[in-house]
Amino acid sequence: MIDVLFTSDFGRRALLAATVVGLVAPVVGAFLVQRRLSLVGDGIGHLALAGVAIGVLVGVSGVAGAMVVALLGAVLLEGLRVRGRLTGDLSLALVFYLGIAAGAVGLSLAGRFDTSVLGVLFGTLFALSWADVGVIALLGAIVVGAVLVLYRPLLAVALDEDTARAGGLPVDALNLALVALTALLVVGGMRVVGLLLVAALMVVPVAAGSKVAHSFRATLGWAVGVGAASAWLGLMVAAWHGGLVPGGTIVLTAIVAFVGFALVGRRTAVGHRPRRTA
């Protein structure tokens, strides 16, 4: 059954889209994790469900609605964070619930609260059109291009926001750019692994890479590799079985990779203990 990924159009589309998201998601995720904002992708993903509902209700596509609400939600979340109102998990939890509840109510009102909702939440990888793949590739290209241009200032802010601000960097604009890129990525990954799992591809490969790398750049390299490999292996498992949701198998594969890297890596799960003396 795995050969359908290479011999059929729907398989090739799935493989291409999953590869793009697997490669790109950790690129943004590394900066989010470094800034202790790992759950922001989830927050935007939950809000995007409300966007899907709004898009359906007003008669545009769910993707367009998700895009608008994800971007607005990203700006809102960043605004709350800057004002110190998103420091605890309670605020983020409220955002999660708002998104899911508004999405459920909106889709009910539109008469679309059916099994298609599962596709939004967990992806519809085998049902993509070439146009869908084109949109995903375009969003991925925008995200990668922006990170390539902004890599150094984004890293400077991620390492020490105060010092970056003191050094003249436009920290607020860079933070806004990062969450906007996260929103684009959430929408790009929505059809691939779903709104509930797309943030996992931003975080889990990065966590895996951090177990074996000595630098941020190396962590990023490993994470991109783990992301892409997880996309391929997870998709192959789903295709081989025939009845598994690819979004779930892709993320589970990434988690297995994390466990493997943690076992062979030299770091503990959280701390990096000093080993040298002054």
Partner: peptide, 9 residues
């Protein structure tokens, strides 16, 4: 810092 970062970085 959460992730590994080299001194040079």
């Amino acid at each position: 810092m959460v992730l590994p970062v080299s001194v040079t970085e």
